[in-house]
Nucleic acid binder design. Structure first.
Lengths: 232, 232
DNA sequence: TTGCATGATTGACAATTATCAATCGTCCAT
DNA sequence: ATGGACGATTGATAATTGTCAATCATGCAA
C-alpha cells in the first residue's frame, strides 16, 4: 500500500484521531485488494467478516427482495462500508459490488471490534461515524417517502452541482440504471424524469446535464437541508 | 420517579452495563415529564437538547417536507429517541409527538455526551444502540423501496402477530392514519390494502385483524428476515 | 467496415398510488 | 336523545410509477 494511500485512510474521520498503535495494528491485519469492475464483494445475509474501505474506484451498495433490486448508496474513495454489521457481528443487510475497477482495504471484523475495545478514541470515532450514517439513511428514507421520482432526481442534480459541478454543468458519472435504482425508480422512469426537468431549467444531452436556470429547478425541487445537506 | 420505572430504564440496553455513577449522574440531571396526547415534543430543524426516553405511552417520530408528512417510526416504552442528533449536537431530522398521554424522561444532551466521554461502558452501549438503529432504518428503506403498500401492510401484520398476537389475532393499536403514514401510504390506500388482504387469508373488522390462513398471507407478503426481523 | 452487445430511450399499456368528494360510524358534549 | 366532530371507508378520477416491446445510439470485437 502506498504511503499516500495510507495517509488518505488515516485522514478518514474513522481513523484520524486514533492512536498510532491502533491504526498500525488494524493495517497489519488488513488486506489491500484490487477488484475488477462488476464484482460482488459482499452478499446480503452473509456474515460481515471485514470492514471495507474504498481506496480507489466506486462501490454500489444494493439489496434484493421480492424479485426486485434496489440501490441503497454509492461509496466513493475514501469511504467505509458495512461498519454496523461488523460491529454487531451480524449478517450484511446489503450487498456490495464494484462499479469500476477498485482498490479495497479489507479490515478483519475481529480486529475492528478489538481495536474499538482498546482505543477509546477509535470508539469515539465509530460513534460519530455511526451517528452520521444513521442520519444519512433517515434522510434517504424521508427523500423516498416525501418526494416523487422527478423531485428526487432534481434534488440529486442540485446536490451534484453543489459538490462537483462547474458552471451549472453536471455529469452523471454512473450508469443511468444505477442512478435510477439509487433514486428508487426504473431506468425508463429516469429517462422520463429527465425529460420532465427540461421544463424546469435543465438541458439534457446524454449524461451531460446543464442547469441553465437554477432558480426554476430549485422551485421545482424544493430542496430541504434536512434531506439534502450532507453535513447536517 | 418510581423505583420500578428507574429499574426499567436501567434495564435498557443503553444503560444496562454502565457504571452506577454514570447512571445516577444522568438521572440527576434529567427531568421526568408527563405530556398529554397529541403534544409535539420536538420539532425537526430545532437543536436536540435532550435525549428522550419513553417511560409510558407512545411517541410518533415523523417528518414533513413538500407539504406532505410521513411517519418514520413509533417509539414505545422503554425506548429512546433522537440519540444520533444528541451525540452530534445537531438539529433534529425528525419531529416527535405523543400518541397517548405519555411519561418521558428527558436527559440533557450535554450530560449524555459528558457521560459518554467518561464511561467506556456507556460509549460501548451507544455504539450498539446506534448500530442497531442504523440497521433498522436500512431495513425500513428496503421495505419502502422493494415492496408495494399492500405488501408492507401484510408484513407489518405478520410482525405484529409474532410480537403481540394471540391465536392469529392482531389489533391495530394506533389510529389507522398513523399506521398509513408509517407504511408510506394514504389512509384511503390503507383501507384498500386491508380490503386486498381479505383475499389472502385475513379477516378485517375495524381495528381487529384476524390472520386465518397464515400460509396464504405469508405467500402474499414474502417476509424477509433481512427486512422484517428486529433482532438481526 | 460490419455486426453484435449493451444501455438508453420511447411508446403503449397496466398497476399502483394519490386526490377529492361523499358517506358511514362512533364517540362525546350539549 | 341530538347534533357535531372526527376518523374510516368508498367511489370516481387523476397522477405516478412500472412493465413490456421496439427502436436508437454507441462502442467494441471479429
Amino acid at each position: 500500500m502506498r504511503q499516500e494511500d495510507i495517509d488518505r485512510v488515516r485522514a478518514l474521520r474513522l481513523f484520524r484521531d486514533v492512536a498510532d498503535e491502533t491504526f498500525e495494528t488494524l493495517l497489519r491485519a488488513s488486506f489491500l485488494q484490487r477488484f475488477p469492475r462488476g464484482l460482488t464483494l459482499i452478499r446480503e445475509s452473509e456474515p460481515a467478516d471485514f470492514l471495507h474501505v474504498v481506496i480507489e474506484g466506486a462501490v454500489e451498495m444494493f439489496a434484493a427482495g421480492n424479485g426486485r433490486e434496489t440501490t441503497i448508496s454509492l461509496v466513493h474513495p475514501i469511504g467505509a462500508f458495512i461498519l454496523a454489521a461488523v460491529l454487531k457481528d451480524q449478517v450484511n443487510l446489503q450487498s456490495a459490488r464494484t462499479l469500476e475497477p477498485s482498490q479495497i482495504l479489507m479490515i478483519p471484523a475481529v480486529s475492528v471490534r478489538q481495536a474499538m475495545e482498546r482505543d477509546p478514541a477509535f470508539m469515539s470515532a465509530i460513534v460519530a461515524e455511526l451517528a452520521t450514517g444513521y442520519r444519512t439513511v433517515v434522510k434517504d428514507l424521508k427523500n423516498q417517502k416525501l418526494r416523487t421520482g422527478a423531485e428526487r432526481l432534481a434534488n440529486w442534480l442540485l446536490r451534484q452541482e453543489k459538490e462537483r459541478g462547474a458552471g451549472g454543468k453536471v455529469e452523471i458519472d454512473v450508469e443511468k440504471r444505477t442512478l435510477a435504482a439509487l433514486l428508487g425508480m426504473t431506468p425508463e422512469n429516469l429517462s422520463r424524469a429527465l425529460a420532465t426537468l427540461k421544463q424546469h431549467g435543465v438541458a439534457v444531452r446524454g449524461a451531460q446535464i446543464e442547469i441553465n436556470e437554477r432558480d426554476r429547478l430549485v422551485r421545482f425541487a424544493h430542496p430541504d437541508p434536512l434531506i439534502d445537506d450532507y453535513d447536517i
